[in-house]
């Protein structure tokens, strides 16, 4: 049954104009259908979609705390299994609730092999509480806790945590990075994850107009540039087989990283020094040099 024409995520929610997270959520739900239970970690998505007594969710939904979305999803899955019910159990978490605070619960969920799809919508900082850096914040990004000034002209000094590869190393059934701006690839991966048995993890890029500092209308354009410049590569790893990871999408021609940087206020300071832009370009080139051969048409 195809539910693409139905909306399981209702309008009237409080997510910012131009936020990409609802695009991710609405499509995951459309592809999963009504036979779904959603578990939500604390974050923008949870706060803005369910201010009591209103909810934007048209499927059963539960929020417990910041750190335990994966643990709650594990319990929901175990209960469904005990009752013999076939359900899609989907957990949504931001980068803070997934790569930092919810990491141990997620690690446990994947290690135990619960039949859950965990979707990380990654906006690369704690946007809900006021743009604090997380382990998913990329090198060079301005946040309110990686401030840019005379003492630190760069901003965030640590590279982005490779969370998808870390979860794949738990031997998860299916792990993929995805980008809603590269839509066919994104859709294929959500469908594949929903059809796979066991613990599944999708790392989905999700632009934040407030924290990335860009015009709301540019959301999808900027996310597309993240992949077209090679900064956010799209790949999938099955059953923990990292050696045989598959890069599923490669732009015909890579765009210079500068095009991605110059559209966002959080990177504006980097453009003042060509050395910084050069460093980021070299990092991207090095990634593709190392892993580019994993691309299969």
């Amino acid at each position: 049954m195809n539910y693409e024409n139905q909306e399981f995520f209702a309008p009237g929610h409080g997510m910012c104009a131009g936020c990409a997270a609802p695009i991710v959520v609405k499509w995951v739900l459309k592809l999963a259908g009504p036979n779904t239970i959603v578990v939500n970690a604390t974050g923008c998505l949870e706060v803005a979609t369910t201010p009591y007594p209103r909810t934007a969710w048209r499927v059963p939904w539960i929020h417990v705390a910041f750190e335990n979305a994966a643990a709650v999803a594990s319990g929901v899955e175990a209960a469904a299994r005990a009752k013999g019910e076939k359900l899609n159990i989907i957990a949504f978490g931001g980068d803070g609730g997934t790569a930092d605070i919810g990491f141990q619960a997620l690690s446990g969920m994947v290690e135990r092999g619960h039949n859950v799809l965990y979707v990380l919508y990654d906006n690369e900082a704690y946007m809900n509480t006021g743009i604090q850096r997380s382990s998913a914040t990329p090198w060079g990004a301005w946040t309110t806790t990686s401030k840019v000034g005379r003492a630190n002209p760069i901003g965030e000094l640590r590279p982005k945590k490779p969370i998808a590869r870390i979860i794949a190393a738990h031997n998860a059934s299916y792990v993929a990075t995805a980008n809603p701006a590269i839509f066919n690839d994104f859709k294929k991966k959500v469908e594949k994850a929903l059809q796979t048995e066991g613990a599944k993890f999708l790392h989905v890029l999700s632009s934040c107009t407030t924290g990335w500092r860009h015009d709301p209308s540019k959301t999808v354009e900027i996310m597309r540039l993240a992949t077209d410049t090679g900064i956010f590569p799209l790949y999938e790893i099955e059953n923990g087989d990292i050696e045989n990871m598959r890069i599923t999408y490669k732009p015909k021609e890579f765009k210079p990283v500068e095009e991605y940087l110059k559209m966002q206020g959080r990177f504006r300071h980097l453009l003042k020094n060509p050395e910084y832009v050069k460093k980021l370009q070299e990092d991207v080139n090095a990634w593709w040099e190392k892993y580019g051969h994993h691309y299969k048409k």
Binding site: H13, R54, W57
Partner: peptide
């Protein structure tokens, strides 16, 4: 919240 999708009341 017992009524699914009642955020539609927020215009």
């Amino acid at each position: 919240i017992t009524e699914p999708g009642n955020s539609v009341e927020n215009k």
